[in-house]
Structure formats: C-alpha cells, structure tokens
Design a protein around this nucleic acid. Sequence first.
DNA 1: AAGATTTATTTGCATATACAAACAACATTC
DNA 2: GAATGTTGTTTGTATATGCAAATAAATCTT
Lengths: 114, 114
Amino acid sequence: MESWKKLGLAPSHAYLLMLVLEEPGVQPGYAAEELQLSPSTVTRLLEKLEEKKLVVRTTEGKLTNIYPTPKAKELYPQMKNCTREFQEKYQALINEEEASRLVKSINRINDQLP
Amino acid sequence: MESWKKLGLAPSHAYLLMLVLEEPGVQPGYAAEELQLSPSTVTRLLEKLEEKKLVVRTTEGKLTNIYPTPKAKELYPQMKNCTREFQEKYQALINEEEASRLVKSINRINDQLP
DNA sequence: AAGATTTATTTGCATATACAAACAACATTC
DNA sequence: GAATGTTGTTTGTATATGCAAATAAATCTT
C-alpha cells in the first residue's frame, strides 16, 4: 500500500482511474460492475477524481461518460508500476501455487453464486 | 443476513457479543485480536452494545472487563441459530468441498503472512 | 401523445472501520 | 522516587461503502 501513497491516490481510486484510462468513455454503471462496487460508491469516487482533475464527466441524457484528463494519462505508467510492485510483493510473500489455487477456488465459487 | 435483522444486531455486533457470552470478562484488546478488528472498532461496537444494555464494562486501572447482561444471555440461543442458519444457507449455496478447499487455502496463506 | 414502467445516476443518510493522538495506569531505570 | 517508556483503552477525525430515495431520461402501453 506504501506505493500508492506516493501517488496520492487510495487504491480504490487508482483502480477506477485505470479502468477509465483503459476504456475512455466508460460509464459509471459498467465501472461499478467491473470493480464490484455499488453505483453510489463509484459516484463518490468519481467526485474525488474530478476534484483532482483526473477525470471529466460528460452527461448526455441519462448516460454519463467518463474520460481521463491528460494529467491522468501522465500518471498511468506510475500506477501500472504500483500494481506490479504490489503483485511482486505479495507473490514473494505468498507461495505462488497457493495463490493460484486460492484464485481458482474463488473463481469456481463465484461461478456458483446466484 | 436477513436472520440477523430480526435480532436487531449487525453481524459484527453479534459476533462480539457472542465472544463476550462465551468468555465473560474478556478484555477489548483480546476481543480485537480474536475478531481481527482494531481496538478502536471494538470500543465503538461496545458503545452500541452498552447502549442496548447487552454488555457492561467495568474498568479497573488500565484494564477493562466486559460482561454480558442477562438480556444478552437470553439472546444467545437466537444468535447461535443465526450463525447456524447462515452456515447452512452458504453451504447449500456453495459446493461443500469447494468451500473447505477455500478455507484451507486461506488458512495456509494466513500462516505464511507476517 | 399522456401516463406508466424501466434504467442510469446522484444524493441523503447510516454503518463499519481505521489511524493517530490523547489519556490513564503500569513498569523500568537511573 | 522522579523521569521515561510501555501498554490498554478511548476519542477525534477521516475514508470507504451501501441502501433507499430522489432525479432524470428513455421506453413501453394503450
């Protein structure tokens, strides 16, 4: 988590921002599903990201599109680094097969949930 | 989660209360470790439980002991029921071996964490 | 086309939780 | 035994998050 602090972004903000960078124009509802958050939480995260001039929202009718600003684009490589660091740290910490077993278990269970 | 509502207790409150019922006189710090919560969170939960006359705190020196009230003791069977219901619901939902594999994975990983 | 239903987003309010600082009692050291 | 450090608990403040209601736009019904 250390790494994120340098960026001045909480992980949840950063993950949303990366999604916006990877799919410019993405809509809040889709982002909510993708990140497994409620729509209202996404709205709150977007408020913060907008304050920080990292995204802009354009609303047309009932749809809203989210776009990254240039400032956000500059941050992208650093954010990628953070996710990499994070993974490396945890893969060192957690035995690798164990982690992949866990991920598989979780995915299988997820498939079975309603 | 339905089941808990009837009791008027959020699950986290109920789990703390059950701990207190099972180990009367337990201390906040110990409860925090046991429930994997921070001490401050336990304090906040205790405030609520005390308001509802389900526990009492007695402070001597820097130590605090938590005791269940008779009212809490009456609730115990119902709370036990809730945990049972909850488990049954999820074991029906999730394939059983899968769940136990997952629990094992999580435990193994937990053992390896610092 | 007016009214009813559905859908996407935002707001108001509530809860859970933590971190850091404050506090209070105890323990250590010189 | 006064100063310093340690430990257990509580407060102040902040963040993350969700549910239910409000809003607003799109779609369907008749």
